[in-house]
Amino acid sequence: MQLYYPSNSLLHYLHGFTKILVFGLLFTFIPLFMDRLASLAGLLLICLALFIYIRPSRWHWFLLIPVLILSFTMSLSYFLSDAGGTLYFQADLGYWKVIVSSSNIETSLKFMCRMLIWCLLFFLILFTTSNEDIVMGLKKFGLPEFVTLSVSLALRYWSLMIFDVKTVMDAQYVRGVDFRSGNLYTRSVRFASTLVPVLFVFLKRFRTTSFALTLKGAGRKNKRTYYYNPRINGLDKRVILNGGLLFAAWLVLRCFFTL
């Protein structure tokens, strides 16, 4: 499973460093300094517009479904506390107390908006940046070689690891272990049992990779060459400048207004 897909949007042409800095850091912090639901909704719409602009495939759109489910489920936890405001509904379930009030709804929606914004920003980076460009982007932040190599290996192998876990589950299913039936405890126990084969399979795989890295000269003491080393161009500089100004402007405005 490859998240990156080549296309001709402006974001596809940006350097990995630019995208990580602007979308991964600056834009990620802005929602934390937004207090009004309208502001968060506005930013969410901007992110969604950018997402549409990069023209993701149908399969990439499907990835928003688990994001929506997860953010909605997590936002429900806000109905277990009393945030004040107009009370619409209350139910006492012993240890738990469910409260639906105007403030609870607002807090919950804000949380959902933030989650969705962060996920969309994350997708914007991953869908428009090849693994190699992400690694080069991280390298520009001054991260040491072993960290960038680890990130590159994680990006290379994560889909294979998911495939291995799925095969382990399949191997248990054909022995009558159904992960879709039974109560929560039974399912958890069954799922936990897959960890043993997963661990053994991964240990063997990682051993191969470790040998392969050594046999390809990884970890040598000499200075490393970067064969692929894209430069930060004018477009990147403009995007970084505008992103920085936007972030700074938001912080300044927030000192004077409730945004």
Binding site: N131, F206, A212, L213, K216, G217, N222, R224, Y227, Y228
Partner: peptide
């Protein structure tokens, strides 16, 4: 599968020489 450590064929081919500093 697991002895190829890079994302594309070109990266895989150049990896060892990069490590050697060519």
């Amino acid at each position: 599968e697991w002895q190829l450590v890079r994302g594309t064929v070109k990266e895989e081919l150049t990896f060892a020489l990069e490590n050697m500093g060519y």
